[in-house]
């Protein structure tokens, strides 16, 4: 059964940095949101935690594309992560979580797991 989720508002359009990422805090922990205005869709969200170092830094990596795939490079050890799938291009056994993201008016929303309290309430 698919766990219950909800669309959490995490920031506004003004917080985004074109061609780069920002970090937001969600109920699931830190998430990196990237805004690539020259792509469609232009918004991507993946876990902010770099699986190789354990540090919360992925939003501070350099974005780009490799063979057409949108990627971010970890600022610590420079591995590339696909913004579409979260898979590490250098080691496909490593993968970071990706989050559905949408623009709702001026709000950026992420689909995150609903926490226990809300699940019970729902």
């Amino acid at each position: 059964m698919k766990p219950r989720t909800r669309w959490e508002a995490v920031c506004t359009v003004d917080d985004l940095v074109p061609e780069s990422g920002i970090a937001v805090w969600t109920e699931e922990g830190p998430v990196a949101v990237f805004y690539l205005p020259h792509r469609l869709p232009a918004l991507f969200a993946i876990s902010h935690t770099d699986p190789f170092s354990g540090a919360n830094v992925l939003a501070r990596g350099i974005t780009g594309d490799l063979k057409g795939e949108p990627v971010v490079a970890s600022p610590l050890y420079k591995q590339h992560f696909s913004l579409l799938t979260g898979v590490c291009l250098e080691d496909d056994t490593v993968r970071v979580k990706t989050y559905p993201v949408l623009l709702d008016g001026n709000q950026i929303r992420l689909e995150v797991r609903a926490n226990q309290r809300e699940s019970i309430a729902a």
């Binding site: 020259h38 792509r39 350099i62 780009g64 594309d65 057409g68 990627v71 490079a73 420079k78 590339h80």
Partner: peptide, 8 residues
């Protein structure tokens, strides 16, 4: 393309 962490 859109660049990468080498060229940027």
């Amino acid at each position: 393309g859109h660049g990468c962490d080498i060229c940027k």
